[in-house]
Design a protein around this nucleic acid. Structure first.
Length: 463
RNA sequence: CGGGGCGUAGCGCAGCCUGGUUAGCGCGCUUGACUCGGGUUCAAGAGGUCGGCCGUUCAAAUCGGCUCGCCCCGACCA
């Protein structure tokens, strides 16, 4: 199908000479929006007839866990090769939502965003010894002059190189620099879609302090920021002291979203808030038997100390005139993984139940029968008004059966669905469905937005 | 890398064991009609180097060898 039946007849278009197809974005309509969209989430509104979201009715054979399956089925991602994925428009919107939350919290904590290269000279990695240590997971290549390069799996070397060139004095500290960027790791076994990919989007922040007291403070700031981020994504998580692996350093914590499909095993004390990834039977604090759960590692923070600054000679001059190595920390969040974790946490057999804060769109308007003039008209009006009131909204303007539209809306997981059907024609009532609990509400058109604001607020405040 | 599985139309699968005309089915897609509150119904149609290469054979999707790709279990990680 895919016809664009626009609101013909009532010519509100600014372009009377052209046909009404020009009103498809809602923006070109020329109405002044009171709520200009701030952020990087793309257009606020969309007609489903033009949405590129190739949905699948059946479960793709390669998908073993729900998040992978639903991301494919909802048309959010497509695989290019093992562990390498394209994010399609809907998927990218959620990625952008998560990214936006992360940026806001990094900025709030005093971070400054930058963008480092993904292509790294091999020499830098040889300086720290990780050219050897990282092993085959490091994707290596050579330039035309046969010089060694690699695709960055993480950025300690590159940021430390920048720091040693530019940081001279304690007066420049503390410094928190972060980026959101694609990382490359030739994983032994890519798995579960974007959960463990070879190319993936990560937020990585690096802290530079003059001493370990400063590092403690930076570390605590990040710890708190991470809590805020995962809270805002509506995820329930555990923070667990962890091994620091190849990244190195002394102190480290993992942020795990609880999910049965998680790759990480963790033990939680049901009485106090102790949790660990180590094998223990009883809580060392209160002696209670620990419960075994599984989690998805979505974030990891490390106190690096001088692990990189020392070998790379990243020194600054302290207040006392002495040259000292920068004290560093690094802090990562897997963005695609966070998205997958949210789906693992919020879904039913029909599809995704996005938390409002990271849903690709907040509201789907579903006229049962697009050929019904009355329904179409009302849907258009609601669509228009939704835009003006600042909702991120799609309207399903396709001539598909009601069942098809409902199924697809549930699969994609729009948190709120506004259904315009027979009740509209008969009693003037519009139905609103809350995706996550299947609650149904009814409202006359005049009261619809009061209801929508109320429901949106409830969904937003629900942590 | 060790172990297991898979590769046939866009997706999900059958056919292979026991080789034999034109390679099937469901969904999706195109066209027309029907229907319009939970992936609606009917009709017509388009769409395939059977992952690739080599071999066996009169004959290969089917048998053998090699190879490539993908998925799952283990060690690694955001």
């Amino acid at each position: 199908m895919g016809h664009c039946f626009c609101s013909s007849g009532k010519s509100t278009s600014l372009f009377p000479g052209r046909n009404n197809k020009n009103d498809w974005t809602g923006r070109s309509r020329g109405r002044a929006f009171t709520n200009a969209y701030k952020g990087n989430g793309g257009e606020k509104t969309l007609r489903m007839s033009s949405l590129f979201a190739p949905t699948l009715k059946e479960n793709p054979q390669e998908a073993e866990i729900v998040s992978h399956s639903f991301m494919l089925r909802a048309g959010m991602i497509r695989q290019l090769s093992s562990g390498i994925y394209a994010f399609l428009p809907l998927g990218l919107r959620t990625i952008s939502k998560i990214t936006k939350i992360i940026k806001e919290e990094m900025d709030r904590a005093g971070g400054q965003e930058l963008l480092l290269p993904a292509l790294h000279p091999g020499e830098l990695w040889k300086e720290t010894g990780r050219w050897e240590v990282y092993g085959p997971e490091l994707i290596r290549l050579k330039d035309r002059k046969d010089r060694d390069f690699c695709l960055g799996p993480t950025h300690e070397e590159v940021i430390t190189d920048l720091a040693r060139r530019e940081i001279r004095s304690y007066r420049q500290l503390p410094l928190l620099l972060y980026q959101i960027q694609t990382k490359f790791r030739d994983e032994i076994r890519p798995r579960f879609g974007v959960m463990r990919a070879r190319e993936f989007i990560m937020k990585d922040l690096y802290s530079f302090d003059r001493d370990f007291e400063g590092l403690e403070i930076s570390y605590q700031k990040m710890y708190n920021a991470y809590c805020r981020i995962f809270d805002r994504c509506d995820l329930s998580y555990e923070v667990v002291p962890a091994e620091s692996g190849v990244i190195g350093g002394a102190v480290s914590h993992e942020f795990l979203v609880l999910a049965d499909s998680g790759e990480e095993k963790l033990l939680i004390c049901p009485t106090c808030n102790f949790s660990t990834t180590q094998d223990e039977e009883r809580c060392p604090h209160c002696g209670t038997d620990l419960e075994e759960k599984r989690g998805i590692e979505v974030g990891h923070i490390f106190q690096l100390g001088t692990k990189y600054s020392e070998p790379m000679k990243a020194y600054f001059v302290d207040r006392d005139g002495e040259e000292k190595p920068l004290i560093m920390g690094c802090y990562g969040i897997g963005i695609g993984r966070t998205m997958a974790a949210a789906i693992e946490a919020y879904h039913d057999d029909k599809g995704i139940q996005w938390p409002l804060s990271i849903a690709p769109y907040e509201v789907a308007i579903i006229p049962i029968n697009w050929k019904n003039a009355k329904q179409r008209e009302v849907a258009e009006e609601i669509y228009q008004e939704s835009q003006e009131k600042g909702f991120e909204v799609v309207v399903d303007d396709r001539e598909f059966s009601a069942g098809y539209k409902f199924s697809e809306a549930d699969l994609i997981g729009f948190p709120l669905q506004v259904i315009v059907g027979e009740k509209m024609s008969q009693e003037g009532k519009i139905e609103v469905k809350v995706r996550k609990n299947d609650q149904r509400w009814e409202a006359k058109k005049e009261e619809l937005f009061t209801l929508l604001f109320k429901l949106k607020e409830e969904l937003a405040s629900k942590a």
